[in-house]
Structures are given as C-alpha cells and as structure tokens.
C-alpha cells in the first residue's frame, strides 16, 4: 500500500538547515498495523506527515496504492488526505466551537452527502466508539479519552483506507491510553491499515511491526 524510496526532507536554509529525513526506505502492506518509534527529533512525525500528505518532501519517491505521489502538487496532497487518509493527533485538534456531532461530521461537510447520510455515518462511528451520548457536548466538556475518541471518530467517519496517529496516547493517562490502543487494534482488525507514531512501548507492542527511526533513517524493523 505504501512504499517510500530514498525520501529526503529538510527544514531551514544555509547554516540553520536541519535534515529531518535522510533517505528513508520503507514499505507498508495493506491491512498492516505498524508503529514508528524513535527519539524526539528522529524524524518520525515528519515521516507520518509526509505519508499523510500534510507535508511535501525534497526528493525521493512516495508510492501510495501503486501510484507515485506528486509531492509538489498541494491540490493532490489535499485530495489524498480528504479521501483516503484519516489522521489523529496527540492534542486532538478538535474545533472548540463545534459540538461532538459537528466535529465528527467535519470531513463529510463538503462531500456532497445528504444530511441523512451524514447523520447515519456520524452516529454509526460515535456508537462504535461508545460516545453517542456526547453528541451535543462541546470539546471542553469532555475528558481526554473522550476527546481522543471524538478525534478518532472524525478520522474514520469518511471510511479511509489508512489511519495515521501521531502519539495518540501521549496526552492520556495509562487506562485511557489502553482503551485508545484497543480502538486502533479493532480498526486494524476491520481491515484498515494503521500507522502509529509513538514513544510508548505498550502501544508499539500491539502492532504487527515496529519501525525504528534514528537520525532521519530507518534504523531497524522488528
């Protein structure tokens, strides 16, 4: 499903230039659950952002679903994120002025679906994640675990093939973190490809494969 060949990415210019990725090669198959681990600054979040079409890269090749991604074409990257990829981030990124229902419905807003279809899809994922009773609540009225469930619901409501999560348990306590892990496992069991960037060994342990990143290159795979 995903193949990266010699991908380079740097930030800054001249003396301030930092090479985040220095020739990353990896491949992730359809339906796999993979965790990307590494120290802070090793380039794992940069890698996830590139996979998710949220960041372009300097050189190399990124093949998604057999097609090479034109990383200089912002429109194409947006379309990839819009249709195929669901993203979950550490601090949830929920719109504070929208209630749970509207937050989850956000990815469907410009899809041209009828209100009934949107409602059906949103309620289905909310029920699946056990937060259907919080439909009218606003993010500031939810616990950390509930917020992360809303963020996951928002990521999966458009039924993406690939789910990316950047430190999804980083802002949660241990018990809530485990609940979130179980959700990702369940999603993977239902056929979704899941890639999780994490520091947490427990989270990594539920994955099929662990990719270690060090100094911008794949160090080893377990």
């Amino acid at each position: 499903m995903i193949e990266m060949k010699n991908v380079y990415k740097s930030f800054g210019k001249n003396n301030g230039r930092v090479e985040a990725l220095r020739g990353v090669n990896l491949s992730i198959a359809d339906g796999e659950m993979v965790s990307i681990m590494g120290k802070s600054g090793s380039g794992k979040s940069t890698l996830l952002n590139i996979i998710g079409g949220m960041m372009s890269f300097d050189s190399g090749e990124y093949i998604y679903d057999g097609k090479s991604i034109d990383y200089k074409n912002h429109k194409k990257l947006v379309e990839l994120r819009r249709n195929d990829i669901g993203v979950v981030v550490q601090y949830f990124a929920l719109a504070e002025d929208l209630n749970v229902y509207n937050n989850v419905a956000l990815p469907l807003k410009y899809k041209g679906y009828s209100g009934r279809k949107v409602k059906k899809l949103v309620m289905e994922v909310l029920e699946e994640l056990g937060i259907s009773d919080k439909v009218k609540a606003y993010p500031n009225e939810l616990s950390g675990g509930q917020k992360q469930r809303v963020a996951i619901a928002r990521a999966i409501v458009k039924q993406p093939k690939l789910i990316l999560a950047d430190e999804p348990t980083g802002a949660l306590d241990a018990a809530t973190g485990e609940e979130v892990q179980r959700i990702f496992k369940k999603l993977n069991d239902s056929g979704k490809t899941v890639i999780i960037v994490t520091h947490d060994e427990k989270v990594a342990s539920i994955c099929d494969r662990i990719i270690h990143i060090k100094d911008g290159v794949v160090d080893n795979e377990v």
């Binding site: 981030v89 990124a93 929920l94 504070e96």
Partner: peptide, 16 residues
C-alpha cells in the same frame, strides 16, 4: 489555529 488544523486534517480545499 485548532480549527484551521482540524480543516487541514480533514482535507478541506482552499475555497472551502
């Protein structure tokens, strides 16, 4: 900023 980030994550187009 959070709202804008959520739009980015959802793949909102420029005009949207």
């Amino acid at each position: 900023e959070t709202l804008f980030k959520s739009w980015d994550l959802c793949g909102f187009r420029f005009l949207e």
